[in-house]
Design a binder for these strands. Structure first.
Lengths: 121, 121
DNA sequence: TCAACAGTTGAATAACTATTCACCTGTTGT
DNA sequence: ACAACAGGTGAATAGTTATTCAACTGTTGA
């Protein structure tokens, strides 16, 4: 069905087209892949991991988070915005204070599963 | 106990030192935080997410992964090294071919938990 | 009204990273 | 031995990002 030139890389190099087709059918749509990797990317920073871990224990204000991490309010505030954008944390205002907490019950499971991987070195 | 200057930011701005101390006791050690965020960071890229997802369905060779993702062998090979370094995938050589598969049963759980978060928008 | 403070933000810098390109290694079949 | 191919890799580029600094908003108490 094809003028069998030696340059027809597809038929030559496609090792197992059946397997490829089978996986292709099950693969998640592009926008979901993007959201998923964005979620993981947000957790892929030590500062944000610490923030999320702290908030998984207690509701905390911005300054206390900074104190806990040994960093500045500015850094924490910047990272909290990133976490807010991905709907990982929510906040509650009380006068001058802003109290942050986790927004999603899956996050803690995600953490625990990640820690289980890390335990195995 | 302190020469009560108005610059003593710690006592003034530490809002709830009891809560801070409580969280500090439970916080994971630095190297674990680092490993955890490194693991999430590795999953924080669409190309690697696709690779991991594909490998969660089938053992695949490098070229087939590239075919599946619509990218090059080189890109896939680079990213497979990153995944290998974090012990997320393993490989098996067979002549010219190298077959990759997932190295860790937790990864699929991590994925499913992440997807559950994404479903909630 | 005003000083003090919690928090946010924009700009700048420095560090990191995903992809591409070109080239390399090692294996297979002839 | 040799051509063909699967896979790996180093350098370069372009894009992204975490932190710092300085300035800002809005709230509280005197």
């Amino acid at each position: 069905m094809k003028s069998g030139g030696k340059k027809d890389a597809c038929e030559i190099t496609c090792i197992d087209s059946k397997r490829v087709a089978s996986v292709r059918k099950k693969i998640e749509p592009e926008h979901k892949i993007q959201l998923l990797s964005d979620t993981f990317k947000v957790l892929g920073d030590p500062t944000r991991v610490k923030i999320v871990f702290a908030l998984s224990q207690e509701e905390l204000c911005v300054y206390d988070i900074a104190l806990l991490l040994g960093t500045t309010k500015s850094t924490v505030s910047h990272q909290l915005r990133v976490l807010r954008n991905m709907r990982l944390v929510k906040y509650r205002k009380d006068g001058k204070m802003v109290y942050y907490s986790l927004d999603d019950e899956h996050i803690k499971n995600l953490f625990d599963e990640g820690l289980r991987h890390v335990e195995d070195l």
